[in-house]
Design a protein around this nucleic acid. Structure first.
Lengths: 318, 318
DNA sequence: CTTGATACG
DNA sequence: CGTAGCAAG
């Protein structure tokens, strides 16, 4: 697929009706001439009709918060507002950057009504990485890490088991400056995570969400040509994403729903990329094929501020 | 001198005329019952009449800025305002926390009309310590450090030579948590500095200003009893201050002018001490006896914010 | 409590 | 550019 063939969504005032699903038509913002630095997925118009009371569903949300304590300190951020706006059942966080000693006080005060929360912290590097699943629904079981001690010192994975699926909240290792961790990432972490997911899948469908630290295709990054050797867009990582996850039957739910839509979930602070939408799609809901059919909406909330990533959401019909 | 015999200046609305100099009467704020945590040196009332055009003089200012870059970033701080208000000829800075690579750009932009500036940075610990003398008057000579390489890697001293005196801007090593550096301070640094000053004094009077990291007497600290083993108020440091500087003929110009006045120059951030005036007097102008007679005013500017120290000033009749 | 250097992203 | 831990005061 060539970059010029993207259907690029622009935040200009041109409304066009487009049929993107078999079931439901909805409105998108579009633009005929794709322009660099202009692509913008618009959540107001790219989402299906609101779910109705008679539709059994579960609503999942995932967010790389880039430091939970910093987020909660922000005047401009209100967790309650996000709950009221999105009314998710489960919230998955990555890069909480918490230490174990900080978890207790934060879990108490974070969200009323979400009484089941499961936190994992990096014990090797303090204040680094860290993931959490915070849920209204009590899961049947919880697992921390991959069960491989070599890969479990950085608090990168939490798994909960619900009635109909396993939910994994993961933060895939960044390959780092100079790609110093690329080899660990593709030869160790990705295959181990993939195997772990296939194991779980033998009993129930699996949904992996989180910051997978890979923009899969050119459409998933603002400047593909300039980032061929940047962590998160190397051929090696993209290939690993393909073979370990997609080829093994996990569906990229956003891309399935929006085959040609530019939807970023990350904009580096380093270039003020959020204003100019110089972004990457690094955050995903990957779902076992058996449950991917139940996805009603896989979406992004690019206008939620407070982190260099935006939250993403998944509505699953039950 | 007992703590209870202090003349404690309070920022309440009781004005009393007090004669503190032989030449000039002026007004001070005072209070009959000294109260802990209430002492406040009031620069508006504790200073002699403004200098007149026909009085030849030089005006020196000294300030531990606790990070010059941070100070200059503050919205609330304006270097120009301080110049307009105090019209000093020479400004001595301590704890600039600059690296050598930062000096060039800062010296260009800092102060118009002060074209002679001499900077020294710590080369052993980056972003640590650092002193500077910034002057309207071009000095005859400049020296960096004590001339003893063991003590000159932390950028703690600059000396300039003017017509009638040497001016030293010094930042005496803090004895540190657990007093781990007390012994270095009193057996190495203080005696070396003292000897250096006595050497210079053979040719011209000497003025040492800066953060000498010692509250000399009980009157110079808000809670003497509680700080007997705190860095800056140990018996050892106070004794060293006495024997190395005062006993060798250097006059504490503020204390000479205000024998019984509580005037702090430092309030730790750790306790919000500036609001409650829980301060220390750590910053001094020490002057050779021969030139101490020419001091017209030795004062503090406790209301200048932007650092945990306040600036101090010295007006010298010529 | 605040600065600055460093690691990491 | 920003978060976090660290050393230092």
């Amino acid at each position: 697929k060539k970059a010029s063939s993207k259907t690029t969504m622009c935040n200009i005032k041109a409304h066009v009706k487009v049929d993107l699903s078999e079931d439901e038509p909805w409105t998108v913002l579009t633009h005929k001439k794709p322009q660099k630095g202009w692509a913008a997925y618009d959540p107001k118009t790219m989402r299906p009709p609101p779910i109705t009371a008679d539709m059994p569903h579960v609503k999942l949300m995932s967010w790389n918060v880039n430091g939970l304590r910093a987020l909660l300190k922000l005047e401009s951020f209100s967790a309650l507002e996000l709950v009221q706006r999105e009314n998710f059942d489960v919230l998955c966080l990555q890069e909480t950057k918490l230490q174990e000693k900080d978890v207790h006080s934060i879990r108490q005060t974070l969200l009323e009504g979400y009484d089941n929360s499961y936190w994992t912290c990096s014990v090797s590097k303090l204040g680094y990485s860290g993931t959490a699943i915070i849920s209204r629904i009590k899961p049947h079981s919880v697992r921390y890490g991959l069960g491989i001690s070599d890969h479990d010192s950085e608090g990168r994975l939490v798994t909960v088991e619900f009635d109909n699926f396993y939910l994994l909240c993961g933060y895939v290792p960044n390959s780092g400056d100079g790609l110093r961790r690329l080899s660990y990432r593709i030869t160790q972490w990705d295959p181990s995570l993939s195997n772990y997911m296939k194991d779980l899948e033998q009993s129930k469908p699996v949904i992996l969400t989180g910051d997978l630290n890979c923009a899969h295709q050119e459409i998933d990054i603002w400047n593909p040509a300039g980032n061929r050797r940047s962590a998160g867009f190397t051929d090696e990582e993209r290939q690993s994403f393909q073979t370990n996850f997609l080829d093994r039957g996990f569906v990229d739910t956003f891309r399935k729903q929006h085959p040609d839509v530019v939807g970023y979930t990350y904009w580096g602070y380093r270039h003020g990329g959020r204003k100019t939408n110089k972004g990457w799609r690094l955050d995903y809901f990957l779902a076992s094929e058996s449950i991917a059919k139940q996805v009603y909406d896989s979406y992004i909330l690019p206008d939620v501020a407070g982190s260099d990533h935006s939250p993403i959401g998944l509505i699953l019909k039950l």
